[in-house]
């Protein structure tokens, strides 16, 4: 069965109407992951856009067809560790344990518990949908926000222009844990993403699996909702977000980028980088190149 057949025949586990923005890649990613994992799943969605969009539920009504919990911003991986351990103990290791968390809950406040769970190689699949900021609460910067981005806590000002620090490359950091599986994915490369979620789920039965997914955000990044997938494509094509995976200790680049487009093309397709100077763009280009070179080296070992 190819990936499209899988997606068209699998059941949607999420409420049909949720209050994610038009063109939200977070919603797309959430639905796809849970379509693949199916009913035999427990999912944790910490505070962020997805839980804010009502997928956990409201009062006595649930937002999922599967068991769902909203843990704290800071403890998704450790909470799910406990659930997973109990299911192993009960002989129910077949149940998929999935976290779908934003970048704040992953790379910032939740990073300690995430790193701890990965170090313990807890059996779960942890997916970070990275929209590069606290988008649910009004587009504040996070540690994965790209340098030069305009956010509500790194505005464009006379004195300081956007975010001053490069983003924390959480996927590579996670891959340095002795975990079971680590990958990056983009909703624009759906076949690749579906394959990675399937592999991640399989590996999560043996240990910790982590997938870092880019999730362009029309509202926070300032682009038209219909351009979400195009933006994600450009992120991959420009090496701003290379697609790779690590398993059995080896790194693989899964979508080869033989002729990358200039990052400028990616950066200029949205409003959040509007005030970048040519120097800024040159520096971001350099960082993207370096990142890709590093990955190529890792993958060639």
């Amino acid at each position: 069965m190819n990936y499209i057949e899988k997606l068209r025949t699998s059941e949607d586990m999420v409420t049909p109407g949720m209050s994610a923005c038009q063109g939200c890649c977070g919603e797309l990613v959430l639905r796809r992951i849970l379509q693949i994992s199916g009913k035999n799943t427990i999912v944790c969605v910490p505070p962020g856009c997805m839980s804010g969009a009502g997928v956990v539920g409201w009062d006595y009504q649930t937002g999922m067809k599967i068991p769902v919990h909203i843990p704290l911003l800071t403890n998704t991986a450790s909470f799910l560790s406990g659930v997973s351990q109990m299911y192993q103990r009960k002989g129910r290791g077949d149940v998929n344990m999935i976290a779908v968390a934003g970048d704040g809950a992953t790379a910032d406040g939740g990073f300690q518990s995430l790193s701890g769970a990965a170090e313990r190689n807890e059996k779960m699949l942890y997916v970070c949908y990275d929209n590069e900021g606290y988008m649910n609460t009004g587009f504040q910067r996070s540690s994965t926000t790209t340098k030069g981005s305009r956010t509500s806590t790194t505005p464009i000002g006379e004195a300081i222009n956007g975010k001053q620090q490069p983003s924390k490359y959480v996927a590579l950091i996670m891959s340095m844990h002795a975990l079971q599986y680590c990958a990056t994915a983009s909703p624009s490369h759906m076949q690749d993403m579906v394959a990675k979620v399937e592999r991640g789920l399989a590996e999560s039965k043996k240990g910790f699996a982590f997938i870092h997914v880019i999730a362009p955000c029309p509202t926070g990044w300032s682009f038209e909702p219909d351009m979400s997938i195009q933006i994600a494509k450009k992120a991959v094509a420009s090496n701003m977000f290379p697609l790779w995976e690590k398993y059995n200790g080896n790194y693989y680049i899964t979508v080869e980028n033989k002729k990358p487009i200039p990052v400028k093309e990616f950066l200029q397709s949205m409003g959040k980088y509007k005030s970048l100077t040519d120097d800024d763009i040159a520096q971001i280009q350099k960082e993207a190149d370096t990142k890709y070179e590093t990955l190529k080296k890792l993958a060639s070992e």
Binding site: H69, S78, F79, V83, S113, G116
Partner: peptide, 17 residues
């Protein structure tokens, strides 16, 4: 775990099972 914050979180997960 790596902290008390995670201690209570792991426990909460186990209790939720």
């Amino acid at each position: 775990t790596e902290s008390e914050h995670s201690v209570m979180s792991v426990i909460q997960g186990a209790a939720c099972a």
